[in-house]
Simulated assay, not measured.
Amino acid sequence: MQFHEFTGEVQHRIEGATQGEAVRATRATLSALGERIAADEAADLAAVLPMEVDWYLTYPDHRNRFDYDAFLERVAERTDSTTADAEATAQAVLGVVAENAPAGELDDVRAELTADYGPLFDVA
């Protein structure tokens, strides 16, 4: 999938979003996820994404321990939104990622997260 297709699909899933908002949502979600999971897992997931967004997963410091609420707070802060909107945004981004990732890749990511992250994958 190309960058414009990826962000276009994110834009479609976030009602009323502009392309810039879709890019910001993608960056916020993937960078927060990249901060939470191991570097090798981030690299594996990034490998299936467009090169313009894969580095959002790979550039942050990895394996930080924070719960799902803190994850949503990071996404909300980076998208200038509420945590409720951040959850819908993150679910939209992960839904697009899920459609492009090999079957077990998201399972590997989920295995690194605590059970409270379950809602993140409700749409994926």
Rank of each mutant, 00 (worst) to 15 (best):
Y68F: 15
F71R: 03
D107G: 02
T7K: 03
A38M: 09
A111H: 01
F3G: 03
E77D: 15
L30W: 07
D44F: 05
I14S: 03
L45P: 02
V23D: 05
L106H: 05
E105C: 09
A46Q: 04
R63D: 15
L49H: 04
E73M: 11
I37C: 02
A47W: 06
G16V: 08
R24Y: 11
F71N: 07
D69S: 15
D69W: 10
A17H: 01
E15D: 13
L49D: 02
T58P: 00
A101D: 12
E52S: 11
D67T: 13
F6T: 06
E21C: 05
D107A: 07
E15A: 15
D80L: 11
D116A: 07
L30G: 03
Y59N: 14
E35S: 13
A111N: 06
W55Q: 15
E112V: 12
V123C: 08
L120G: 08
Q19A: 12
T58N: 01
R27T: 07
E73P: 09
V53W: 06
V53P: 00
T29H: 02
A115C: 00
T83H: 08
T82C: 09
V75R: 10
P119I: 10
E105W: 09
A115W: 00
E15G: 13
I14G: 06
T83I: 14
I14E: 08
G20K: 13
E21N: 08
T29Q: 03
L106V: 04
Q11C: 05
D61T: 15
F6S: 05
A39Q: 15
D85W: 04
H62L: 13
E87Q: 14
D44W: 10
A92W: 01
A90Q: 07
T114M: 01
R74N: 07
E99H: 06
G95E: 11
E5K: 12
L57P: 00
A25M: 06
A90K: 02
L57Y: 05
A111S: 10
H12P: 04
M51G: 12
L45M: 10
N64Y: 14
G16Y: 00
V93Q: 04
L30F: 11
P50F: 10
V53A: 05
Q19R: 14
T79K: 00
A76M: 06
R110A: 08
L94Y: 01
P119T: 07
H12G: 01
A25L: 10
A32R: 02
